[in-house]
Design a binder for these strands. Structure first.
Length: 578
DNA sequence: GCCGTTTTCGGCCCGACTGTTTTCAGTCG
């Protein structure tokens, strides 16, 4: 059993105990245990076998026993018993904003509500407003929350779909008869969320039926929606819809282009074709007499229109066609352009790994530097650092830096932006650091003016290096606060503040749709993982996809700088403050 | 349920906001 699966079970136990009304500290012990397990660098099975597991901070005898049972048997009786005490729908209900364990439990016990559907019905029938502790506003809020979930319920986070798609693609490619196969659709375009997984393949017509049978049986689907010779759809074990289309190999480039989309890009491309007396569809590019223009790959298709190859990420009909025609497509940033990682947490605040572990992991990734930015003191729930602890962390960083000749740790903070736009640390504390990330974590419900004014004021502090997750959004869960982007970017430009592309696949914040606008204001971006564990460091690579989607080149991104250049950049900010 | 320079019990993660109340419970970050 994987570490992450075990961590998820511990986390779920924590929530179930909360539902049960257990001692909140017991609940927290499970949540904490889950975080510790996630951050373990050693192999869990080894730790269990040697008995070292119970010596790890945060894992006592009770959790050690449960982890041992999970590792050895793949099951946990305690968990199964606990889970069976509550209907499955109760955990789902926790997704509705404003619904916590206490409310869920009350509605379950008093009204027998065990699902989001039942909750919606009860609200519509005005049965919630009368319950003690609830009122009409709560009832309205619940309905709004359910509407939000429904609106996003058929979509999935990019990285989750990516992992499923990668596996499916490998399976399909392993099937005999398959000549070419690729993932297409919004996944290939690096959209932050996707509806389903689209895969196209090429094969001889006599092989197609066998491939479809293989696809609908060997991928362990939950169900089969349809099965034909050219198109089949399944629901994967994880609940995502996946479509496979098969064409002849000489049709492959056209179908790959067609299903990569976007719809808008395709419409524009078909318009171009029409102007030239051509017809474009998923089956080919045809002259008026019906003759197909042969294309071996997508590059050939674009060259028919005297265009450079348009990277899939750019295919949104947002100027990429004009740029490709005039040879003005940007040379997009690549994963290899990154030289270091900024914005990472350690066990000093709410990270799962120590300073040393984070540094080692970052170095192993081939990076030149790591910028540590743990939470500031006001973020108490995340064990935010006091000025004293921050100073102590600085000492440890200096000692570690003395050990490395080929790697450097920069000392920073993720300093909270207070309600009035001031910062959580005083200027003299900030002046001691290499760099300063500023973020909003409290009072996220703001009008556009409130949010913009608050952040602009914070950016005017001369010690600030980077504005972290600029809108606070959580994909599919929570809209960010609204911003006046012109004002934000203008202020960032004037104050030499870098804006973060938070590369956590749960955030992707700043949204790619605003990256080009930021660039026009002369603002630099930084692709930051906001890593809370060594595993989280690799999130920067998701962020590269988002940066590409926003037309960014290596020179637009702060952490493509070599260690020497970025040290100078940080020093430049400090020089301007003294 | 975990932990210990206050060590086998008693403290752990606090503060703001919202909506419900008329002094506070629940949720969220």
């Amino acid at each position: 059993m994987e570490k992450s699966q075990i961590a998820n079970i511990l986390e779920e136990i924590g929530y179930l105990l909360e539902l049960k009304g257990e001692n909140p500290f017991k609940t927290r012990a499970y949540e904490n245990g889950a975080r510790v397990v996630k951050g373990l660098s050693q192999d869990l099975a080894d730790l269990v076998a040697s008995g070292e597991i119970s010596k790890i901070k945060g894992i006592g005898s009770a959790l050690a026993d449960k982890i041992t049972e999970l590792v050895q048997t793949g099951r946990l009786e305690y968990y199964e018993k606990l889970k069976s005490a509550f209907p499955d729908g109760l955990l789902e209900m926790a997704k509705v904003p404003g619904m916590g364990p206490k409310k869920i439990r009350k509605l379950y016990e008093e009204e027998g509500i065990t699902s989001i559907d039942a909750l919606e019905k009860a609200c519509q029938e005005n049965r919630i407003a009368g319950i003690e502790g609830f009122g009409s506003k709560t009832q309205t809020k619940i309905l709004e929350g359910i509407a939000f979930i429904r609106q996003h319920s058929n979509r999935h986070l990019y990285h989750q779909a990516y992992h499923v798609a990668e596996k499916l693609l490998d399976t399909i490619r392993s099937c005999s008869g398959v000549i070419r196969a690729e993932v297409t659709g919004s996944l290939r375009r690096c959209k932050e969320t996707v509806k389903d997984i689209d895969i196209v393949a090429s094969a001889a017509s006599e092989d197609r039926e066998g491939i479809m049978t293989f696809f609908t049986t060997q991928t362990a689907p939950k169900s089969i929606i349809s099965k034909g010779e050219t198109k089949s759809s399944i629901i994967t074990g994880g609940g995502m819809q996946a479509d496979l289309r098969i064409v002849a190999d000489d049709e492959f480039p056209y179908i790959l282009h067609h299903f990569t989309g976007s719809k808008e890009h395709n419409t524009a491309m078909r318009g171009l074709a029409k102007k030239r007396g051509l017809k474009m569809s998923e089956y080919g590019l045809f002259r008026e007499n019906g003759e197909r223009i042969d294309c071996a790959d997508e590059t050939d298709i674009f060259s028919v229109f005297d265009m450079a190859f348009v990277p899939p990420e750019l295919r949104e009909d947002l100027g990429e066609i004009e740029a490709a025609q005039s040879d003005k497509l940007p040379h997009l940033i690549c994963p290899d352009d990154l030289r270091g990682i900024l914005h990472a947490h350690t066990t000093y605040s709410d990270g799962a790994n120590t300073l040393r572990e984070m540094a080692e992991a970052c170095r192993t990734m081939g990076m030149q530097y790591l910028g540590i930015s743990d939470h500031s003191k006001i973020v108490v729930y995340a064990n935010g650092l006091s000025a004293d602890r921050l100073k102590k962390q600085g000492d440890e960083i200096r000692a570690l830096n003395d050990e490395y000749s080929d790697f450097r740790i920069f000392h920073g903070t993720e300093c909270d932006i207070m309600l009035d736009g001031t910062l959580d640390f005083s200027d003299d504390v900030l002046a001691e650091l290499d760099f300063v990330v500023i973020s909003v974590h409290q009072k996220l419900a703001m009008s556009q003016k409130e949010a913009t004014d608050r952040i602009v004021k914070a950016m005017q502090n001369p010690h600030v290096t980077i504005l972290g997750h600029p809108t606070g959004r959580i994909l599919l869960e929570r809209e960010g606060y609204p911003l006046d982007y012109d004002k934000i970017f203008a202020a960032a430009g004037e104050n030499n503040v870098v804006i973060e592309i938070n590369a956590s696949p749960y955030r992707f914040d700043l949204d790619w749709r605003y990256l080009r606008q930021a660039k026009e204001y002369g603002v630099k971006l930084s692709i930051n993982p906001d890593a809370h564990s060594t595993d989280g460091l690799a999130d920067i690579y998701w962020g590269v996809g988002i940066a590409r989607k926003g037309w960014l080149q290596a020179a637009d991104v702060l952490n493509t700088m070599d260690v020497g250049d970025i040290a100078n950049f940080f020093r430049g900010i400090k020089a301007s403050t003294s």
